[in-house]
Design a binder for these strands. Structure first.
Length: 225
DNA sequence: GCGACAG
DNA sequence: ATCTTGTCGC
């Protein structure tokens, strides 16, 4: 069984694994009815990584389940290798959910990644669950001007290839970087992200996951003192 | 050599 | 991401 304890790889092994998993990513939609949508986030404090996975009812965007996990931070952050830092603890948190979500919205990239395997695609393939990459900043690719109003978006490109979409989720605010995770096409991914954004720049999934992961940090601080 | 660089 | 003070707006 895969746990947080056996995710350690050398840089060379990580690259091989990314190439292997990238070949398994499905870029077309294979998605059932979406009743539950998940948000995932990790916060690091005092050398420990705390993960919160939240499950929202997609129709109401109300919280219906939470899974958490904690483990020592295994590796330093390196652009392109986020999944090896945050993936293990997220994996454990997902396993603790009572309600298995139909769709995962990650705080990071999908295939808009130097090796076409951001954390959303990496975890999506490992779990064989539909997933979307929804990052707050760009890792890879380039794009042209973007409209100022909510709902407008422009392709994120790598040379001539469309690898994602830069999406204005809120008027005049920084855009979101949406890309295919696994088993959801780009157009559908943008649709789901915007549906979760309601009145904020970030999707409700991300907002809830961030809040609960931070709560874990604060409780640790309190106990510590 | 220099800039870019999810979280 | 994390650290961290003052500042702006509702």
């Amino acid at each position: 069984m895969i746990t947080a304890q056996n995710w350690t790889f050398s840089s060379d092994e990580a690259l091989i694994l990314q190439q292997e998993l990238a070949s398994q990513v499905e870029h077309t939609t294979r998605l059932g009815p979406v009743r539950y949508v998940a948000g995932l986030d990790v916060h690091v404090y005092d050398g420990m990584a705390r993960a919160a996975v939240v499950v929202l009812d997609f129709n109401t965007l109300k919280l219906v389940d939470v899974g958490t996990a904690i483990c020592p931070v295994a590796v330093a952050y390196k652009p392109g290798l986020l999944a090896f830092r945050e993936g293990p603890v997220l994996f454990d948190a997902i396993k603790r959910l009572d309600i298995m979500p139909d769709l995962l919205i990650f705080d990071g990239q999908g295939i808009a990644h130097p090796h076409h395997l951001g954390i959303a695609s990496h975890l999506g393939v490992m779990l064989d669950l539909p997933s979307i990459g929804c990052a707050k900043s760009k890792l890879f690719g380039h794009y042209d001007e973007l409209g100022e109003t909510k709902g407008s978006y422009t392709p994120l490109l790598h040379e001539e290839e469309v690898i994602g979409a830069v999406v204005r989720s809120h008027d005049k605010m920084k855009p979101l970087y949406v890309s295919i995770g696994h088993r959801v096409d780009l157009e559908t991914s943008v649709k789901y992200v915007l549906a979760c954004c309601r009145d904020h720049r970030l999707p409700e999934t991300t907002r809830w996951a961030d809040k609960l992961a931070r709560r874990g940090d604060k409780m640790a601080t309190k106990i510590r003192v």
